[in-house]
Simulated scan of single mutants.
Amino acid sequence: MNRLVTRLSVDSPTRYVGTAVLALGVQSGLALAYLAVTDAGLASPRTLAIPFVWITVAAVGVRHADRPESGRAVLALAGVVGAGYALVLGWLTGAVGLSSGAVTGFDVVLLPPWWGPMVRYDGPLVSLFLFPYRVVGYATLAYLVSVAVRDVAEYGPSAGVGGLIAIGSCAGCALPVVAAVGSALGGAGFGLGTASAAAGGTYLLATVAYVLSVAVLTVRPTIRRT
Rank of each mutant, 00 (worst) to 15 (best):
2 N>P: 14
3 R>W: 06
3 R>D: 10
10 V>S: 01
10 V>C: 03
14 T>K: 11
14 T>Y: 05
14 T>Q: 09
15 R>Q: 08
19 T>Q: 01
22 L>A: 14
23 A>M: 11
24 L>M: 12
26 V>F: 06
27 Q>Y: 11
29 G>I: 04
30 L>K: 06
30 L>I: 14
34 Y>F: 08
41 G>N: 10
44 S>H: 13
44 S>G: 14
51 P>H: 07
51 P>D: 05
52 F>I: 09
54 W>I: 12
59 A>M: 13
59 A>I: 10
60 V>A: 15
61 G>V: 04
62 V>A: 12
65 A>Q: 08
65 A>N: 05
67 R>I: 13
68 P>W: 11
69 E>T: 14
71 G>P: 08
74 V>F: 09
77 L>H: 08
80 V>R: 06
81 V>C: 06
81 V>G: 05
88 V>S: 12
88 V>H: 09
93 T>Q: 14
93 T>I: 13
94 G>N: 05
96 V>G: 02
97 G>P: 08
98 L>F: 10
104 T>M: 03
112 P>V: 10
117 P>A: 13
119 V>K: 03
122 D>P: 04
123 G>M: 05
127 S>K: 14
128 L>H: 06
131 F>L: 13
131 F>I: 05
133 Y>K: 02
135 V>A: 14
137 G>V: 02
139 A>Y: 04
141 L>A: 02
143 Y>V: 15
145 V>G: 00
145 V>P: 00
146 S>G: 15
146 S>T: 05
147 V>I: 09
147 V>Y: 00
147 V>M: 02
152 V>E: 00
153 A>S: 15
154 E>A: 15
154 E>C: 11
157 P>C: 03
157 P>D: 02
160 G>V: 00
160 G>Q: 00
160 G>H: 00
165 I>G: 01
165 I>W: 03
166 A>G: 12
171 A>C: 11
172 G>R: 04
177 V>Y: 10
179 A>K: 12
182 G>N: 15
188 A>E: 14
194 T>M: 15
198 A>T: 02
200 G>L: 05
200 G>V: 07
202 T>L: 08
203 Y>M: 12
206 A>E: 11
206 A>Q: 03
212 L>V: 06
214 V>N: 01
218 T>C: 01
220 R>E: 02
221 P>L: 04
222 T>N: 01
225 R>V: 15
